[in-house]
Design a protein around this nucleic acid. Sequence first.
DNA 1: AAGTGGTCTAGACCACTGT
DNA 2: CAGTGGTCTAGACCACTTG
Lengths: 258, 258
Amino acid sequence: MQLGSIDRRDDRAPYRQIADQLRAAIDAGELRPGERLPSEAELTRHYSVARMTARQAIQELRSEGRVVAEHGRGVFVRTPAPVRRLASDRFARKHRAAGRAAFLAEADKAGAAAGVDQIEVTHATVTGDVRERLRLAEDDSVVVRSRRYLLDARPIEVAVSYLPASIADGTPIEEPNPGPGGIYARLEDAGHTLDHFTEEVTARMPTTDERRRLELPDGVPVLVVVRTAFDTEGTPVEVCDTVKAAPAYVLEYDFPAR
Amino acid sequence: MQLGSIDRRDDRAPYRQIADQLRAAIDAGELRPGERLPSEAELTRHYSVARMTARQAIQELRSEGRVVAEHGRGVFVRTPAPVRRLASDRFARKHRAAGRAAFLAEADKAGAAAGVDQIEVTHATVTGDVRERLRLAEDDSVVVRSRRYLLDARPIEVAVSYLPASIADGTPIEEPNPGPGGIYARLEDAGHTLDHFTEEVTARMPTTDERRRLELPDGVPVLVVVRTAFDTEGTPVEVCDTVKAAPAYVLEYDFPAR
DNA sequence: AAGTGGTCTAGACCACTGT
DNA sequence: CAGTGGTCTAGACCACTTG
């Protein structure tokens, strides 16, 4: 790629000018996804700046999520993650009929290799949001199902489901593998026909723990989706708290103008 | 607040240890929102490290969106933005009846001072996503309505609406102020009774331009919501592309289990 | 004027990756 | 091994905020 030069009279700091030039090169397609940026040593020589100045320019692009540094190898233009489009009918009964949980059924459709790991099932009592959403009393126990979803061997989502123990106890929901159709099929087996879901969506930067579990580089936010499932009685039967690598997702919703 | 110390045998780098201690202090409530962190000079003295090391610790918290640096004043624990909950019935006809656009009607309800500025209305031809969504031919013209939303004088969202010129031309939709009930009311005046909306939601780090318009500090992602409005004929009549400061929003959706 | 963060320099040593 | 990024030091000058 072609590097420009620094104008010391410019009111942008030198590191910003370098960052702007690199960013422009990426936007213009001179640096394509997966390509290596000039090394810190090259930038240092070319622009006649100290190494920390070159580093700061790269740091700026990293925190924007545009490049990824790999120790010992170089800094690379981020390759866009394959996007999963999550339609709001993804929990429709017809998909469960095929005997697959929603996530796996969908991945099949997209021809991707899907997986679930880090499955943990425990019992606990809960406070705050989850308790309110499930309308539980203080000492009511819940079954907590925690797991991580992988697509093409890359982690893309961590999820924790909370189900009232009064519903889930003694069912396969307490097992790591709840059987064909997933826990929603088991809820219906238990007489809780599902009626509707609500989802609350927001985004933020990941915690340190989330960055580790999702293997997120710098500058990648997460989508936080909290879903509550209601049965035909209007009783909340599950709260599912999910944290997704944001660039890997588009959520789709459809609603009436009424 | 109480500062700890650095363990040189710890395999976490010193700057990470410092960052971890500050983060823990914030999480524990020892440092409350709005409070100042120890200055770089104080950290440097306390931990006996170089200034750049202390700075790097603070940089880590900044890119996590947990603290905000103010030149000449200090580094402060971020004060959570007031959250707007956007329910999916916010465009319901009953809200338009009151003669207010959706955004203003909602802000009234929340008792906040809402505003809109940077309104620009132009004509253009479009390509890509927007053209596909509106099912337009290559040379079809659209009315482009761009604006910025403020809550309590702080910018929280920028939005661009695209409407087919064949529908919007000659209506108040071409005016900066489209009149009571907003453009959705004008679409219905023009015989396009609204039937339903789709929304596509994702999140990413803001561009430089978005950071400026939304006055975003480091480490704050944006929610990107693209809404398409359909009339009762099934014709797409508007595409609205919005970029929201993520911490200021929770989107709520409700959908059937079917 | 004193204190704060923003930027820059010119080195150093280390850990990781590839040949 | 050479080349890469990761971390650290010990200074310097600047711009901004507050008293």
